[in-house]
Write a protein that binds this DNA or RNA. Structure first.
Lengths: 238, 238
DNA sequence: CAGATGTCAATTGTCAGACAATTGACATCT
DNA sequence: AGATGTCAATTGTCTGACAATTGACATCTG
């Protein structure tokens, strides 16, 4: 069975490439021309264009044409796209490995029960691990999930260090978005012990809720980052 | 002359309201039905739908229907929307005031010249100020702009503490997006002095490039935040 | 000559109608 | 009970057309 991309997907990729290859301010070919070139109807093309327009990559002016804005967004996506630390590290060329790993099935704390919107008596799986870079601990990640979301079996078989990648690969439940709160903190006693750093060292902390398509919270996580290893950024738009 | 909204704009607003008023997971009326109700063609409607789809507010399934995801994105926008600290503070109900303010016309440092992509001999305006909350300094913001972007006159007249708001109000040049890098740092000597805190205190730091529509960098800024006053978050999507 | 005005081709915005592909519920058969 | 066929509903895509706007050029006018 050959994996065939749908018309939309092909079109989207082709357009993305075209836009990425264009200089800022450059005018794209006209819609009839593009539709011919991409072998789709103008209506379908326009819908795809609208997608790029809402992302601020192009703007259209009636009577004049379609123009690309600066391609910052294309070559450079930030925190606003949901991807794991491992995927992010791979993109920036930082070799990372999985350090100490703990997988605890247990009952949730009051905070976790509230965050995940579950009963105190129900079960959760808590995944704690250290991410190593250049033989030093660079991050400490703690994920808490309802036990029915992720089977312990899947965790044993092919856990590479990323709960997010596992959930994405599993495909069920379908993930929608994540709300990530950003703080600067000093290392607490247990975080310092896990990362082998001094208590009081400065850390970047993310507290995140991961939402499934139906609105359910499927993962509540704390992530601690030692400055210098990762570079996080956000693209902000008007 | 009456200001009339274009068909697209009306449609967009109506759809936004409809989606916002829907419960998570709810199915929207069919496309032909919606097109009739909004008095537009199905093609136009679909283009607007695509806009909301790329924003993750709805998803469409062929043969089944169009569904709204949870309205997190609607009620809760984060760092990914470009707005000033003052606007953000107003939204969360934190009363802030402008503390010590310095406006320096000077020549750029090497770092600034490179960031703004200008000559070392050209002029820049450097705006430094402290943001106060509850009688304590909560943030320290340093903006550097090419001198032709912002007239010193505008700064004198109605500067409320936000360079971004001033540029948005001025409308020229039109702003497109901002790239904001996120770090956790300890206070350096001069930052500590400006904020009246201890050297070595933990701070959240943003380093941001503000882009105009033509791709030019119009503002290069450092922002330091004392933990506890502001809450920053990002909505991340697949 | 400078500025206003008209003309026109190119381009995006919108429309109507049609058919294809998929889904989900229901009925039917084994 | 489970597999299979049927069918209406819904989104995906296509075609061709016309309206509205833009920008360049020619033309008129004081």
């Amino acid at each position: 069975m050959v994996s065939v991309l749908s018309t939309s997907q092909r079109l989207h990729e082709n357009l993305a490439r075209l836009i990425a290859d264009s200089a800022p301010g450059e005018r794209l070919p006209s819609e009839p021309e593009l539709a011919r070139r991409m072998s789709v109807s103008r209506a379908t093309l326009r819908e795809a264009m609208r997608a790029f327009e809402t992302q601020g990559m192009i703007y259209r002016r009636q009577g004049s044409g379609t123009y690309v804005t600066h391609p910052t967004q294309v070559i450079d996506s930030g925190l606003e796209v949901l991807q794991s630390i491992e995927t992010l590290a791979r993109h920036i060329g930082l070799p990372v490995s999985l350090g100490e790993l703990h997988i605890d099935p247990r009952t949730p704390t009051e905070e976790e029960a509230q965050a995940l919107n579950i009963e105190l008596e129900s079960g959760v799986i808590c995944v704690r691990r250290v991410i190593m870079a250049q033989d030093h601990s660079a991050a400490y990640l703690v994920d808490t999930l309802p036990e029915d979301v992720l089977s312990p079996k899947a965790l044993e078989v092919d856990f590479t260090g990323s709960v997010l990648d596992l959930l994405l690969k599993q495909g069920n439940p379908p993930l929608a978005s994540s709300r990530c709160e950003i703080n600067a903190v000093t290392a607490s006693v247990d975080v310092a012990r896990a990362m082998h750093i001094q208590r009081g060292d400065v850390l970047l902390r993310f507290v995140a809720y991961l939402y499934a398509g139906n609105g359910r919270v499927v993962d509540y996580s704390y992530s601690y980052f030692l400055p210098g290893y990762f570079r996080f950024h956000v693209v902000r738009r008007v």
